[in-house]
Amino acid sequence: MLINELSHRSGVSARALRHYDRLGLLSSRRLDNGYRDFTDCAVEEVRRIRLLLDIGLTLQAAAQVLPCFTEDGELTACPTARERLRGQILEVDSSIAQLQRLREQLTGTLANLVDI
């Protein structure tokens, strides 16, 4: 299938699909006219990529975790997936702590506002 059909079937922009393809996250072949040709499996590949991006992984991290999916589309407990997901949890925890500190600063600043 051509990129526009994959875009329509996956709900992901053609631009993003080209980017995934350039990074090697999607597999395609080039037709004689230079167009990318994707197999029907590409829809599932895009779903997996989007799942990993939605949980906050970078494209580079997603590339490392993609081999951990089964043919049925389930993420397995392979060491790479475990390591990357644990790392993502640590990053989320760090962001939460930073936001809590910022909230405390804002609350303190608001409490110290002087009426004019």
Rank of each mutant, 00 (worst) to 15 (best):
Q60V: 15
Q64A: 14
L90T: 14
T80Y: 01
T76L: 13
P79T: 08
E71D: 03
E83F: 11
L85Q: 03
E104N: 05
V92K: 08
R22A: 13
L23I: 12
I116M: 05
L106F: 15
A63M: 06
L102V: 02
Y20T: 01
S13C: 04
T109S: 05
A77W: 05
R15T: 15
I116D: 08
S13T: 13
G73Y: 05
R47F: 00
Q100N: 14
E71N: 00
Q105R: 15
I49D: 00
Y35E: 13
T80N: 00
E71K: 06
A63T: 00
Q88G: 00
V92M: 04
R29H: 15
L113F: 12
S95F: 04
S95M: 09
E71T: 14
D54Q: 08
L26C: 13
T109D: 10
T76D: 08
S13E: 15
F69P: 09
T58Q: 09
D72T: 11
L52P: 12
L25R: 14
S94H: 07
D40M: 02
R86F: 12
I116P: 14
T58A: 08
R50A: 03
Q64S: 11
E74P: 00
I96L: 15
P79F: 09
L57V: 04
E104R: 09
A61W: 03
S95W: 03
T76N: 04
I49F: 02
S13D: 11
E71G: 02
E71P: 00
R22C: 06
P79Y: 05
S13V: 10
L110R: 14
E44H: 05
L23Q: 11
A42D: 03
G108L: 05
G108W: 07
R86W: 10
L90D: 13
G34D: 13
A61F: 01
A14Y: 08
D93E: 15
